[in-house]
Simulated scan of single mutants.
Amino acid sequence: MKKIQWMLAVVLSSLIGLVHAIDLPGPVVTADWLSKNQSEVQIVEVRTDAASYLKTPEFDVDKKTGKKFLVEMGGHINNSSLLDFKKVRVERVVDGKKVKFLIPEKADFEKLIQSAGVNADKPIILVPVGQDMSDVDEALRTYWEFKVYGEDRVAVLDGGIAGWLNEGREFTTTNSQKADGNWVAKAYRKELIASSDEVAAASKTGKPQLLDARQPAQYWGVAKSPSVLTYGHIAGAKELAPELLAKPSNGALYFWSKNTYEALMAGNGLSNKAPTITYCNTGHLAAGGWFVMSELVGNKSTKLYDGSLHLWTLEGRPLVGVPLN
C-alpha cells in the first residue's frame, strides 16, 4: 500500500509540474518576456567567441542623446549557460567521405547539451550575439538541431545579447556554468533533414523549391566560400540573402513580421506555402532560411540540407553561375 501511495505521489507531483510549466509564446521571445520569466526557463547563450562570455562589455555614449551603446561584446545574462557554436556541428563520415559541419549523432548531441547544464524540466531560450545575421544563425542552427531531436520547448531571444545590453538590462561576467544537465532527445525527426539525392531531384523538377540562403556574390558564382569546391548555386534554386532576414535597430538585429517575410519571399520567386529545402555553404546560414520559412511563416514542409554545398561539391555534383573571365 505504501508503495502505491508513493507512486501516486510521484505521478501527482509530475502532473502539477506540467500544469505550472510555462508556455513559450512562440519560436521567438522578446527581452521583456524573458526578463519577466527568467526563473521559469533555461537560458543558453550560443557563441563562437566563447571568451566574450566572461569579458566585460564596452559601451560608448551618443553625444546627442546621452544614451549608452555597445561597442565591444561581452558579458551574459544572469544564470545563463554557454554553448560553444564550434561544437554544435561536427565532422562525420558519409559514404566513405569525411564531411564537416554536420549535425551530431543523437548521443553526442545529448552529451553536448547536457554539458551546458541543460535539463529536461524547463523550456530553453537560445541567445545569439545578435549583431550580425551570421551569429543569429548560430542560435537558429542550434534551434534546428533541437527540433530534429524532438525538443519543442525551445525559442530564440529577439535581438540577442546585443539587444539586451543596449536596452540597459542586467548582465554579469561571472562564470555561471552549471553542473551537467539531464536533457535527452525525445525523437529523431528525419523529415527535417534533406539528403543530396532529394536536393538533386528538386533541382530537376522544381519540387520541392530550393532556397539558397547565401549572399548574392556566392549565389551567382563570382565568389565562393573555402568550404565549397566550385562556384555558383544549385540549378533551379532561388536566393534569399541573409541580410534580408532581420532588421537592425539600436545596435541589434530583430526579426521582421510574417507579412514582411512573405513579401520578401514572393519578391525572390519563392512560395511561402510550397515544400522547401534550404541550403547554404555548410548548413549554417541555411538555418536562417529554414527558421523563417518553417517557424515564422509557418511552412512546416521545410527541410534543411545538412552539409549543404560543402557536401554537394565533395560529391562532385554541379553548380551553375555566371561566366567568369
Results as ranks from 00 to 15, higher is better:
residue 318 P to T: 13
residue 96 G to Y: 06
residue 9 A to M: 04
residue 201 A to N: 14
residue 227 S to E: 15
residue 29 V to G: 08
residue 63 K to S: 14
residue 28 V to L: 15
residue 150 G to K: 01
residue 70 L to P: 04
residue 79 N to R: 15
residue 302 T to I: 10
residue 221 G to L: 13
residue 320 V to Q: 13
residue 68 K to V: 03
residue 129 V to Y: 04
residue 92 R to I: 04
residue 217 A to V: 08
residue 56 T to W: 07
residue 325 N to W: 10
residue 302 T to Y: 12
residue 128 P to H: 04
residue 240 L to Y: 14
residue 160 G to F: 04
residue 232 G to L: 10
residue 183 W to Q: 09
residue 72 E to H: 09
residue 145 E to T: 15
residue 193 I to W: 11
residue 257 S to K: 14
residue 219 Y to H: 13
residue 38 Q to N: 02
residue 102 L to Q: 14
residue 280 C to K: 06
residue 205 T to R: 13
residue 54 L to D: 05
residue 228 V to G: 07
residue 189 R to H: 14
residue 199 V to S: 09
residue 109 F to S: 06
residue 184 V to R: 12
residue 22 I to M: 15
residue 202 A to M: 02
residue 208 P to Y: 00
residue 294 S to R: 03
residue 309 L to K: 10
residue 112 L to T: 13
residue 152 D to A: 09
residue 204 K to W: 04
residue 71 V to I: 12
residue 315 E to A: 13
residue 158 D to W: 02
residue 288 G to F: 07
residue 276 T to F: 13
residue 15 L to D: 07
residue 142 T to D: 12
residue 39 S to C: 10
residue 184 V to M: 10
residue 8 L to M: 11
residue 298 G to V: 00
residue 227 S to K: 14
residue 211 L to C: 12
residue 174 T to C: 07
residue 39 S to I: 11
residue 231 Y to A: 08
residue 40 E to Q: 15
residue 165 L to Q: 11
residue 166 N to V: 13
